[in-house]
Design a protein around this nucleic acid. Structure first.
Length: 594
DNA sequence: GGGTAGCGGGG
DNA sequence: GTGTACGCTACCC
């Protein structure tokens, strides 16, 4: 048996002999070769809570489901016995679950909608972007792959070494398109330039026109340009392919152009073309085995701006104006064949360069979040913070033997959405006037602290009126009660996140190697975001652990905390003049010489 | 006020 | 893909 260590970039599954085959895509951490490790042993499953265990087992066997085991799992604080039904193929699950759900002996089904590759990552406890140790042998499989890709058959579970790679190789790309008739259409408007820029210094603009600029490479036709584009991506073999709005513009355009010109686009490690995955209201451009990140989505998540154009974002982050060519004039610059064309080359190059610079600044946080949440970087880069919280909790639920709550049905979802909104933080309108000796006092992570201190969790909320007052926390402004013991699922996880953050911050301050110091900084930022998003998630209608009462209790206690703090400050000679949620401004009116 | 249509980024 | 989906603002009645 051989052992390899790979940086885990991506994961999927394919079907062979009607059985699923998990594929881990990675890069050998020593030789840098591309590796696909496959696992034929992993099977899909779901949980069934029976009304009548024995009868239910009979009914399931009648359906031909005979790989059945009994397992104790905790459901929102209550231990129950579930039937774990293991199936052959993931695509059976949606078909069978509807039948199983309707069986008279079945009370409820669980964990029937966890994508197969995510299930694998969770169950094997391996994390994308980490270094993974794999055991098995180099053995061919009928994957269509490039010659230099190593195919590896897993014979044991992969092991997460927890080792991380601090610097990812980034290659950004951008295209310019002929647009004499307004927004271009890929059916008729050619791609005129394709720019590429790596964080290793690689810079190139491909075009069908000539230039004296050394970064320009001229190709005879658009077809040749597209082929060269594929070639460069294979040669550079980056950890991350980055574009700006590339999910919805560049990649769809490139794909449609290739289709129109009737040429192949073997960008994936398995020689596959770009695929589009429907995610919400827009596409995600997937290049198999490589990680495509659309920076626009990260920028939307991390920055709060009036507009999110590349220019605006670049100015905000670096305080430098980008080379500008008005979008609707691009075809005029192209047709000019004079210095305007030269300016267009510069503009095209600059778009890719700035994209790389922004990526270098923002993606380390996304990679840190990937490692915390344990899902693929491709997915994390397209998740909202609420979804990240959910997948983090799903991972933790597995660790703590908690069964995962179901996603809300459409009915539950619309009900939640239409129900009255939870009251927010306390706001004191600012007092008019000019004040001296202003102090700002605020709570460090107010809501996470409230959740922990009051043990606010779906599994600790109680309506039991026989309890003694000493046994629960009573929420102000309402009669919600939360048990003091045992520690709730979510408070214990937030507690862990906050402790972990303190530990990482300590490491960060002690660290002397700048690279590592930065890595710790991104990790603690990721943890902070996770802790702070937990409150919002309680009120997010699509959240599996949604609990309006918890959200309401958190803000109610939050209001109490801040108002108490304001009162207390008055005893020390302060007069609060403005407050919002977790902090307030106060003017010092006591004697400063005291 | 409640409801829905439209839009973001990209050229 | 163990598919089915955002969140805000403008404008309407």
């Amino acid at each position: 048996m051989e052992t390899k260590t790979i940086v885990l970039n991506d994961i999927d599954y394919i079907t062979r002999d009607e059985k699923p085959v998990i594929r881990l895509f990675g890069r050998d951490s020593k030789t840098n070769e591309n590796v696909i490790a496959y696992d034929t042993t992993f099977k899909p499953y779901l949980y069934i809570l029976p009304n009548n265990l024995d009868e239910c087992l009979v009914e399931l066997r009648q359906l031909g489901i005979d790989d059945l085991e009994l397992e104790d799992k905790i459901d929102i604080g209550v231990k129950r016995e579930y039937i774990k039904a293991t199936l052959i193929h993931p695509q059976e699950v949606p078909k069978l679950r509807d039948i199983i759900r309707e069986l008279p002996t079945v009370r409820e089904i669980r964990e029937y909608d966890i994508p197969f590759y995510r299930r694998y990552l969770i169950d094997k406890q391996i994390t994308p972007t980490n270094v993974i140790e794999i055991h098995g042998k180099t053995q061919d499989m009928d994957f269509d792959v490039d010659d230099d890709v190593i195919i590896f058959k897993l014979e044991e579970n992969p092991i997460d070494t927890k080792e991380i790679v601090n610097q990812n190789k980034i290659l950004s790309f951008d295209i310019e398109v002929y647009n004499a008739e307004g927004m271009p259409s890929a059916k008729k408007d050619a791609i005129i330039m394709m720019s590429l820029c790596g964080n290793n210094g690689f810079k190139k603009v491909l075009s069908t026109k000539k230039s004296s600029k050394d970064f320009v490479e001229t190709l005879p036709t658009e077809e040749d340009m597209l082929k060269r584009f594929v070639e460069i991506i294979k040669e550079e073999n980056p950890d991350m392919l980055v574009g700006y709005n590339s999910d919805n513009f560049d990649l769809p355009y490139i794909k449609e152009r290739a289709d129109t010109l009737n040429i192949k686009l073997p960008l994936g490690i398995d020689k596959s073309s770009i695929k589009f995955i429907k995610r919400g209201f827009n596409n995600a451009g997937l290049i198999r085995g490589r990680v495509h990140v659309d920076l626009y989505l990260l920028v939307r998540q991390y920055m709060n701006l009036d507009r999110y154009t590349l220019e605006r974002v670049y100015k905000e982050l670096f305080d430098i104006e980008k080379i500008d060519v008005p979008g609707d004039k691009i075809f005029e610059y192209w047709d000019s064949d004079n210095e305007l064309l030269e300016k267009l080359f510069d503009y095209s190059m600059d778009d890719a360069i700035t994209t790389t610079e922004i990526a270098d600044k923002l993606t380390p946080l996304t990679v840190a979040q990937t490692r915390l949440v344990g899902q693929p970087l491709f997915d994390i880069a397209r998740m909202t913070t609420g979804q990240m919280v959910e997948w983090y909790l799903i991972w933790k639920a597995f660790e703590k033997n908690n069964i995962i709550p179901n996603k809300p049905t459409t009915n539950e979802y619309t009900q939640r959405r239409s129900s009255k909104k939870v009251a927010g933080g306390y706001v004191k309108e600012p007092e008019k006037g000019l004040f001296e000796h202003i102090a700002y006092l605020d709570f460090k992570s107010l809501y996470p602290s409230v959740i922990i201190a009051q043990n606010i969790s779906p599994d600790t909320i109680t309506t039991d009126d026989t309890l003694d007052e000493s046994e629960y926390h009573l929420c102000p402004e309402s009669d919600y009660k939360f048990l003091k013991e045992p520690k709730g699922f979510i408070p214990s996880i937030i507690g862990y996140i906050l402790d972990e953050r303190q530990r990482i911050k300590k490491l960060m301050y002690e660290e002397t190697v700048p690279e590592q110091k930065k890595a710790y900084d991104f990790e603690q930022q990721g943890l902070k975001r996770l802790a702070n998003s937990m409150f919002g998630a309680y009120g997010y209608a699509r959240f599996r652990w949604y609990k309006k009462e918890c959200a309401a209790a958190i803000t109610a206690w939050g209001r109490e905390y801040i108002q108490d703090a304001m009162k207390k400050s008055e005893e020390y000679g302060f007069k609060p003049i403005y407050a919002d949620t977790d902090g307030f401004y106060a003017t010092y009116i006591g004697n400063l010489d005291d």
